[in-house]
Write a protein that binds this DNA or RNA. Sequence first.
DNA 1: TATTTTTGATTAAACGTTTCATCGATTGTG
DNA 2: CACAATCGATGAAACGTTTAATCAAAAATA
Lengths: 340, 340
Amino acid sequence: MKKNITIHDVAKHANVSIATVSNVINGTGRVSQNTLNIVNNSIDKLGYYPNISARTMKKKSSNLISVIVPFQNEKGNLHDNPFYWNLVSGIEKVSRKNKFQVVLTGVTGDNDLSLNFIKERNIDGVVIIGASHNATLVKETKSLAIPSVFVDSYLMDEEVYQVFLDDEQGGYKGIKFLLDQGHKHIALIGGNKEINGVMKERFEGAKKAFAQTDITIDESIYIDVPVSMEGGYDAGEIIINHPKITAIFCFSDVLAIGLMKYLSEKKKRIPDDYALIGFDNISASQYTTPPLTTISQNTVHKGEVTANLLIDQIMNNNDIKQKKIILPISLIERESTSYL
Amino acid sequence: MKKNITIHDVAKHANVSIATVSNVINGTGRVSQNTLNIVNNSIDKLGYYPNISARTMKKKSSNLISVIVPFQNEKGNLHDNPFYWNLVSGIEKVSRKNKFQVVLTGVTGDNDLSLNFIKERNIDGVVIIGASHNATLVKETKSLAIPSVFVDSYLMDEEVYQVFLDDEQGGYKGIKFLLDQGHKHIALIGGNKEINGVMKERFEGAKKAFAQTDITIDESIYIDVPVSMEGGYDAGEIIINHPKITAIFCFSDVLAIGLMKYLSEKKKRIPDDYALIGFDNISASQYTTPPLTTISQNTVHKGEVTANLLIDQIMNNNDIKQKKIILPISLIERESTSYL
DNA sequence: TATTTTTGATTAAACGTTTCATCGATTGTG
DNA sequence: CACAATCGATGAAACGTTTAATCAAAAATA
């Protein structure tokens, strides 16, 4: 078992005290140019690297960021949706640039909801993705009293840092677009819209668009399914049994992709039989046939914004303008929609 | 600033020594049922949780697993491919079950190739994904001399723990399938096949399938593009300029999805004009039109296997049968192929 | 009963840092 | 020249565990 090189070894080698070595490593205190060189030289020569656990213990800060992904299903896997990967990608990238590392943790139900590790490890900040459905998780996180950012969670809580999309505007624009094209009977497919969350917001936006016309939303239908390709596929049956429907707004691209399969199996044509809009602009959405008109969000960017907001808190940047960051959306018109 | 509850506080509260408390926490040493109850009671009452950094320092083990994803591109983002997310999902799940947490780290080129954090944090084990292209990374990792598993890396190194797919068999089965259907001119699309790695293996398998027939592989073509939807799309132009080609084998589903878009834009029909096979069986592949015939791997499962192999090493399970685990593939026939 | 073994618990050192208080030497001021 | 201020460096305590060595009391053995 090879013995670790410690700060003591460096101190001995450089003929200085460990305090001086520590100062050199951290750029703290006062140290002359001369000893600085000597110490750095010793560090190189010995191949010294600091022990972060010791540092963490002393400083009560680990330079670790925890990203928590709650599960919708019970299989224990992370969501099968490219959206999450892109988000995490953005978070990881910015964190890395700022010398933080990302601990990725999935939490399932309330059962194994143990955020203890955050305190145990002196984790500096935590990102929670899509916690709307999980009140316990939110409460638990708040009680940690460490820097945190909730993504896509729609918490009615001014105290809390949040990043989300202008989902309402997204819902609005999607429906407005379809209405402008002359559609009158529009199906909406999404997850549970009763809970505060992205689905509810998108739906609220949709309602607003309807309200601006003389078409009442009652002529439409909302189909509540699991947000996955399979869910979208399953929703297809309901769609084709509603004879009047001419357009569909899926509150997630994965839903739209699943639905397209069902419709294509039933020989329905897009956009001829049904105009179709998705949400998220995952990269697959431009590769469907036809390419999917969708509400675009830059998910990697969202992750970057999230990480920055978190790190600003950690660093005590008091020039944080706002606790809530709402990212804009835009509608990308592709070929799954066209004028009637 | 609230003071942390330490093992000392618990000891005082329970009227025992800190050593006893430590024994209770870890289930080590001898402690009577009576004091066990008392101590546990104190722990609950005080809301004590151990400080993992202190423990890590003493035990030289952090219960942390590092997952390293090398980048192909220079944008600094993790690969935009659902494959990776599924893999990480499997790793995270098994790790969590075994009380390990996952640190996710992207490394770009050789420039910022700093694996120092692994030693600095006493990380217990490391998973490296797709390191074939990155010799420095491999060398660096080996020099760490800690438990490690390379995924999809094809290292010619018997010392090293590896998990990969039976890529050669995958390449073989795909081509054999097309040849059996009567195709004679087949295009292959993949990444760089000159480096040891999944692409090379798949190509080798393909060659074997050709060798069993009187059709020579020279009548085929290999198109080397970045492994992404965009790459597949770009390959399309080459395809349609090769008049004899009747079938295409994409060494990744994302390539196939990109290609399908190009072909559909050019009014080519699948499978009528081109038979098409993908690789990976990402969930999107069954939602394309037509659904994609593909070589299937269970990527979440692959992640689970990887984590188990790593944890077995960490736990010193000497009943590890083999250092190389090759996971089977199977061909899933969908509608992007059919007999001529 | 005298002696050994086992049980349950304790003491104290060690893990590798950071940081505060201290201190001698050098430089600056009036 | 006497004194104050600054500079560069140090010693030692503290962070919160684990664990080896030790020990008294209780139980088992002869």
